[in-house]
Amino acid sequence: MKKIWALVQGDWLNLWRSSKVIFGMILLYEVIYLLAGEGWIFLSVLSVALGGMLSYTSLGYDERSGWNRFILTTAYSRKDYVLGKYLVALMGTIGGGVVLALVGLIADLTGKVPLESGLVLMAGPMACGTLISLSIVLPLAFYFGIEKARLLNMLVIFLIFAGAGGMAGVGGSAMEEFPSLITGLNFILPVVTVCLLLLSGFLSVRIYQKRQF
């Protein structure tokens, strides 16, 4: 576990230095929302998807630098590497969700947007949506690699955002029509997400262990 944590720390250092743009975007969107108000909510919710996407970005960097290949000659196992990426995905997604929730809180406190708009509540389902998308995307990335599938990249990014947005949309409209649905969603969705994530992780480890370089 210590090994995985070291890898994850390395990944975040790498991401922080290489992807300042993405962190900047998240900050920018939240600021716009806070200043401009409700109409810009869709920008704000992107933080979750962007956060989750960082794991995918990280894979891309590793591939380009050759780290994903070199690491296989070290005592880090292939399993360590894969699980590290999943941990990054979790941290990124949840991190994005926390940002979202905080922003929602700030918006409410400053009187800009009332809490009822459900922004804070959106964070959970959105995170789940993103993670579900990543559950599909990550095994594909481990199998095909990132450089080779430019088209797949586009599809992937779309999926991640769709997953997050879809949840937001579904969650939003469902809440208006069936308030009781929320409780059910709050139970089932995380469970489903966790299951899918575990399955995906297991699959990815297998894929990476079999892969040749």
Binding site: L7, L13, N14, S65, R69, F70, T74
Partner: peptide, 28 residues
């Protein structure tokens, strides 16, 4: 086994000491 590949494979935004730290957890 100590390995030097044709493509060095270290993250391009890291400095020597950071790479060392990353590898230190990888090798007992």
């Amino acid at each position: 086994i100590g390995v030097v590949l044709d493509i060095p494979g270290f993250p391009s935004v890291m400095r020597a000491a950071e790479i060392g730290k990353l590898l230190s957890a990888g090798f007992p």
